[in-house]
Design a binder for these strands. Structure first.
Length: 1254
RNA sequence: GCCCGGGUGGCGGAAUGGUUUACGCAGAGGACUUAAAAUCCUCGGCCCCUAACAGGGCUUGUGGGUUCGACUCCCACCCCGGGCACCA
């Protein structure tokens, strides 16, 4: 008998598979994408050739070689692919290398090699190792992200993004490691709870020779703050600092909503979907305006329009409204009520005569008045406070009377002067304006900047008698975003982020400007670390002289600047509701700002008989919650309801002629019997409850007031039986009350007023921070009192003139890297073009792309000039100063502008490596003769047939980054009509983490498993199977050295079994008629296993699939003499995805029906018939007969009172009577039955019988 | 703090509300062998009782609940791993 020699077998087949190309899908054969769903358990054979794209996350090839973690992932993916192939799909399973990026570059730095040379080396090594795994990769379609032919398209994506306005440049704070002198990607910043000691930091710094003096070195002590979280460099643990740099961004935020909602459509691991949802972080809320008043008040100048006067339209009303608020208003009459006299000079004269401007002036022009306003500003030599243009224009192109003005006005404006003198600029334009086309508003906005608002006026062109929108925008206002508009009545102050523009706009009105400026300066200089290191103690400064008006109740509230509000979140300003927001609460406590509670907890029972009955009126009742203290111990009187799981204090309604304390004392007596309760104080808290009162047949809305009592002594009366039935009376220790109280009745609020009374000195200062986001009932909220907070949200938003809106946590994707090893960003900066674009008249704008217009001077490299090749640079080491090493390569950045030909400068930053991997699944299909092409029809054809990816397997660490970016790019491609789908991966599964002896593998721990070693020692098949056997694939596993022996034994037993002579030469051909019991058992075991393995692979439960194969092998070995060839063939097929080499060897040697010329060799029609062998991997997957997976006997479990007393083999399908009789034959069972009659007998069919005695 | 996972023998792990511990590793005993390795067979939770057989009790992080019966469902809590974090 030949010994199992995996070394020769594995290398032979790996070579053979490659030369025969058996894992190449047939791209050229015209196929329709498969339509009908393929049942995995379908009967009969499946025609080959339906495409199945089985993708695994491609590795980044560090030269250290393939990590066993890679192998773990790839094997899991490959098993699935092989399984699908045997099920009849044409499987495409490509592999490539994600070789660009910081990981590879760091390794090059560490080992002092050049990344380009290193890439060559690791590519060879990696592919060699990958070939040894025995995966069914399509080796013709490999790709490497650093291949210029590949990154040509990475760059093309950027140029297209740029042209379409999806890419822009702005200043941003990036992570900077002062030790490595380089920018770090966010994912390279570790959130360390504590940075190790300064000494060890220095010692563990990487040995990058310093080419320059490190002037930016920051003293470590400054950052060594124990017990606080600090972002630290992945490599050297140096705390990361933020540095402001000009960076390129991709507008992923434009796709936030789609990225979120399309998650519903895809079959992905739920945890990955959740991670993405959290990352996108949608919050629904409202934008609400707060009017701002300054001590030094603005004065208003209102300029009416053509054929108007200060008595027309909204002017009288607006004047009155403004004066009502104490503002001075000037409203001059302009002499152009007659068209023939309308004339610029006349108007300006009239204006000068009647109006006085100063720095606090708000200049508001309507229609033609806007021209006068702008002209007036042109001539001013100081700035005013604000310019508001309502229904304005800057070209004489409006619908009527255009000709009247073409000549009497000078239509050239000095926009720059206007801009400098205007202060804040607001342009209001009715999108459906019947007098002035909307584009005039847009043009004004283009020319002047500021904000462009599109309100709906009462009458077109703002000709209504009252135009509240104008009033709103004429006044200073602060827009906040809030998710809790229902709490607005509790807003007691406002907070601006230090960077908020309003601070600057209001400067003149701030009385303590120096202090404010000082504070802003300080926070700006603070690094992120310091802000965190402050222990998060909130700081802030009040803007003295500035007040905001709470639109809900008209009250004046203070305005603060504080750095706990971030400019990048929401609108950069908040309304602070300290009673219902922990951060605001903390701040309010520190600065002694008022805290008003406006949401009170509500308990609504809806799911049982106590629930509110719809249709009946809701009657309001006062009720009490009594907290009663023990007479000598620190214990409190509680009730435990018997019929429900409520646990709480004594509650009860207040009868007529009773006050709260009397009612409470009575309830205490009735419910607990204690008679000596003494009323101490009113706790003030209120809990609401809504329920159905069965006796009175009405819905009740009870408002429970918390009252505090102490017992004088233990005097106790008898409790009625009725009360006893309802609840138990318990004394609960002070410390345990919190735990004891249940969440449904929600009495914690009241309890906290007892346990920590200092937090609640009075009715207006009460607060319970854990309640912040809870539903409740509104109080102190005027007409909204009693309303549910959820319901009140949008009603209040409406009431205060707010606007519903969504915000997302997702930020735009920063793709600039000041590094060497990545694709250069293909853009060129041209001074000449910059000027041309800035000066370009509007009509000429069409010549430029959106990106060029929005980023003046930046020109994309034309497609024909792509790729912008990364030059070989000796000094590739990252430099300081926030520049890529390419910035020192003249020949690289000195270029001519592709637009105008003048001298220009190429961008020297490279792009993020996640961009490389965001489209690689296209890349595999786009490769043709070592080039990639995604714009031709050939690719489109393939894409249509093979995309989107059917199954994608990879690590959960990419849940957010890679997977989100790829989805983004796919959606972008879809919008560009390159593809007809908008989700890249139909199905995604995250595999678990492979650990070693209970700990994460890491070089420092020295417990990294080297797959090369194990493959050499035990073979790829054994290692594959062992890895899959460790635990559930989606959960990961623990690699233990000895465990692999079990698999090795298993494979050897398979080998030996197949070689047994009695199997190779069966003595008597058994036909179906004379099957004995053993044959049946084997057959049944086989069918069971087919079912189990098929289902397990589909669900990625490889560990249990393997265990099922082991069980089958045990069974077959016991019956080896009667084993049929068919059974062994099926077994090998089941094993083939897990152990591809040994099964192929055995198959080709003994079982290939072609060779053996057995009757069942006519499997698939004419496939590969000329080949010298038929691979087991192209055989069809075994099918099973459900009927044959069932046993005809079972072990009847006999229980007495739920305890197992015996198991008896029984025929399937026996009746209760039969089972009972059988059970009674057992001595042990009878002993436990003890002559008693069973009260109840429970039979679980074909499984169990339970005698219940008592 | 919030959001995800997870907690079962000596170990990795298995288990549609129905015998907890499948399969494998490690271990013990036996066969083969001069011997060892390999291989094959047998036995494996803990505690009590027993010379042994038989038998009994306990046991899936903790405490409650639902149920004839809970690893599984419900409530509360503890611990471990991962992610996010002043997101308004």
């Amino acid at each position: 008998m030949k010994k199992y020699n995996f070394r020769t077998i594995e290398s032979f087949w790996q070579k053979e598979w490659r030369t025969e190309q058996i894992h190449e899908p047939n791209f050229s054969r015209p196929q329709k994408p498969f339509r009908q769903a393929l049942q995995p358990r379908a009967q009969g054979r499946v025609a080959r050739g339906r495409p199945f794209y089985n993708l695994m996350m491609f590795p980044y090839p560090s030269a250290e070689g393939l990590h066993v973690g890679n192998m773990y992932a790839f094997t899991g993916s490959d098993i699935y692919g092989r399984f699908k192939r045997m099920q009849g799909y044409d499987v495409f399973e490509p592999i490539g290398l994600d070789g660009f990026g910081i990981h590879s570059e760091n390794y090059a730095l560490k080992t002092n090699q050049h990344p380009m040379k290193l890439a060559e080396k690791s590519e060879k090594n990696f592919y060699r190792q990958l070939r040894m795994l025995g995966n069914s990769f399509a080796w013709n379609e490999t790709l490497e992200t650093y291949d210029p032919e590949y990154y040509k398209w990475t760059q093309w994506i950027l140029t297209e993004m740029f042209k379409r306005g999806l890419m822009y440049r702005k200043k941003a704070a990036v992570n900077w490691c002062p030790s490595c002198k380089t920018v770090l990607a966010d994912e390279q910043v570790l959130q360390k709870s504590q940075v190790s000691s300064p000494k060890s930091q220095k010692n563990s710094k990487p040995q990058i020779p310093n080419s320059e003096q490190d002037k930016e070195n920051i003293p470590y002590s400054k950052f060594h703050i124990p017990n606080s979280k600090v972002g630290a460099c992945e490599r050297c643990e140096t705390p990361v600092v933020k540095k402001e740099l000009e960076q390129w961004f991709l507008k992923i935020t434009d796709y936030a909503e789609r990225l979120l909602s399309d998650l519903e459509k895809i079959d992905w691991s739920e945890k990955v979907k959740i991670a993405q949802r959290n990352w996108i972080g949608k919050s629904e809320g409202a934008e609400i305006d707060f009017e701002i008043r300054t001590k030094e008040k603005p004065n208003f100048v209102l300029l009416h329009g053509y054929t108007g006067s200060p008595k027309h339209n909204f002017f009288p009303w607006l004047k009155k409204e403004l004066e009502k608020r104490g503002y001075k208003v000037q409203s001059p009459t302009l002499p152009h009520s007659d068209a023939s006299r309308a004339n610029e000079n006349d108007d300006m004269d009239a204006f000068r005569k009647q109006v006085e401007l100063n720095r606090n002036t708000v200049l508001l022009g309507h229609s033609l008045g806007t021209i006068v306003a702008m002209k007036a500003l042109e001539k001013l030599d100081y700035p005013i406070r604000k310019l508001a243009l309502v229904g304005g224009f800057l070209e004489p192109r409006f619908r009527d009377h255009a000709r009247s003005f073409t000549k009497t006005f000078n239509w050239r404006f000095n926009f720059e002067k206007i801009r400098t003198n205007a202060g804040k600029i607001t342009i209001l334009h009715d999108p459906n304006d019947r007098a002035i086309p909307y584009d005039q508003g847009v043009k004004l906005h283009d020319a002047l900047g500021g904000e462009l608002i599109e309100p709906i006026p009462k009458k077109s062109h703002f000709c209504g008698k009252e135009e509240p929108e104008i009033l709103k925008y004429a006044l200073d206002r602060l827009t906040v975003f809030t998710t809790r508009p229902d709490t607005i009545f509790g807003a007691t102050y406002m907070v601006l982020a230090p960077e908020h523009p309003l601070v600057k706009n209001l400067e003149s009105g701030i009385l303590n400007l120096e202090r404010v400026k000082d504070y802003i300066r300080k926070t700006k200089n603070k690094s992120e670390e310091e802000r965190i290191a402050d222990g998060r103690e909130k700081t802030g400064v009040e803007l003295k002289g500035i007040k905001a008006i709470n639109p809900a109740n008209g009250e004046e509230i203070p305005v603060w600047v504080a750095d706990y509000v971030l400019n990048s979140v929401g609108t950069g300003a908040i309304m602070a509701v300290p009673a219902h927001d922990e951060r605001d609460f903390e701040f309010a406590k520190k600065y002694k700002l008022p805290i008003i509670e406006v949401v009170e907890p509500l308990f609504v029972k809806t799911d049982d008989i106590d629930g509110v009955r719809p249709g009946l009126p809701l009657k309001e009742r006062s009720a009490i919650v009594a907290v009663v203290k023990h007479w000598s111990e620190d214990k409190y009187l509680c009730l435990k309801w018997k019929k429900t799981d409520w646990r709480g204090f004594i509650i009860g309604g207040i009868e007529e002629d009773e006050d709260m304390a009397e009612a409470a004392a009575r309830e205490i007596r009735e419910e607990t019997g204690y008679a000596s309760a003494r009323f101490i104080r009113n706790l003030g808290g209120i809990v609401h409850a809504r329920f159905y009162h069965a006796v009175k047949n009405e819905n009740r809305w009870a408002r429970f007031h918390g009252l505090y009592f102490e017992l004088a002594d233990g005097t106790r009366e008898k409790i009625s039986d009725e009360e006893k039935q309802i609840h138990d009376v318990v004394w609960v220790d002070r410390k345990e009350v919190d735990h004891f109280l249940d969440w449904v009745t929600d009495m914690r609020l009241i309890w906290h007023r007892v346990s920590s009374p200092d937090d609640f000195p009075g009715r207006n200062d009460i607060h319970e921070s854990s309640r912040v986001n809870k539903q409740g009932v509104l109080a102190c909220s005027g007409e909204f009192n009693g309303m549910n907070s959820g319901e009140a949200k949008w009603k209040i938003t409406n009431f205060v003139g707010g606007k519903r809106g969504n915000r997302y946590r997702l930020r735009d994707w920063l793709i600039s890297r000041q590094r060497y090893w990545g694709p250069p960003i293909p853009l060129i900066f041209c001074e000449n073009c910059a000027n041309k674009i800035k000066e370009a008249p509007r009509q000429a704008r069409g010549k430029f792309t959106k990106g060029e217009f929005e980023n003046p001077g930046w020109i994309p490299v034309p497609e024909k000039d792509l790729p912008v090749k990364l030059p070989y640079v000796k000094g590739f080491r990252p430099r300081g100063k926030g520049q890529s090493p390419l910035a020192s390569v003249k020949s690289f950045y000195e270029v001519n502008c592709p637009r105008c030909g003048s001298r220009a400068r190429g961008e020297t930053d490279v792009s993020d490596t996640f961009l490389d991997s965001s489209w690689y699944y296209f890349g595999y299909l786009a490769k043709e003769n070592s080039k990639f092409e995604i714009l031709n029809s050939k690719f489109r054809g393939r894409a249509k047939q093979w995309l989107p990816v059917d199954m994608y397997i990879g690590g959960a660490e990419h849940s957010v980054l890679h997977l989100l970016y790829t989805r983004f790019i796919t959606k972008v491609f879809h919008d560009w009509k390159l593809i007809n789908f908008n989700e890249p991966f139909k199905r995604f599964r995250a595999h678990g983490l492979l650990i070693k002896d209970g700990a994460k593998m890491s070089k420092s721990k020295g417990n990294v498993v080297n797959p090369d070693f194990y493959i050499k020692e035990f073979g790829a098949d054994a290692l594959r199977m062992y890895l899959m056997f460790l635990g559930p694939f989606e959960q990961g596993g623990d690699f233990q050295d000895r465990g692999i022996l079990g698999i090795t034994r298993f494979l050897e037993r398979v080998w030996n079994l197949c070689q047994k002579s009695e199997i190779q030469n069966p003595k008597s051909k058994t036909n179906s008629n004379d099957k004995n019991q053993n044959d049946k058992n084997i057959e049944r075991a086989l069918h069971k296993t087919v079912k189990k393995v098929t289902e397990d692979i589909e669900n990625l439960h490889y560990n249990t699939a393997i265990s099922a194969l082991m069980i089958l092998l045990n069974e077959m070995e016991k019956n080896s003499s009667r084993l049929s060839l068919l059974a062994l063939r099926s077994f090998l097929k089941l094993l083939a995805p897990f152990a591809p080499h040994i099964t192929e060897e055995l198959w080709s040697r003994f079982f290939d029906p072609q060779k053996l010329k057995t009757p069942d060799s006519q499997s698939e029609s004419g496939h590969n018939s000329s080949k010298k062998y038929r691979s087991v991997h192209k055989e069809s997957w075994p099918i099973y007969d459900p009927a044959l997976t069932e046993e005809d006997t079972f072990k009847l479990v006999v229980q007495v009172n739920g305890r197992v007393r015996d198991t008896i083999t029984a025929r399937k399908g026996i009746s209760q009577k039969e089972a009972e009789a059988l059970a009674r034959t057992s001595e042990n069972v009878m002993r436990h039955l003890d002559k008693k009659a069973a009260k109840k007998i429970i039979l679980v069919k074909d499984r169990l019988i339970n005698f219940v005695l008592q």
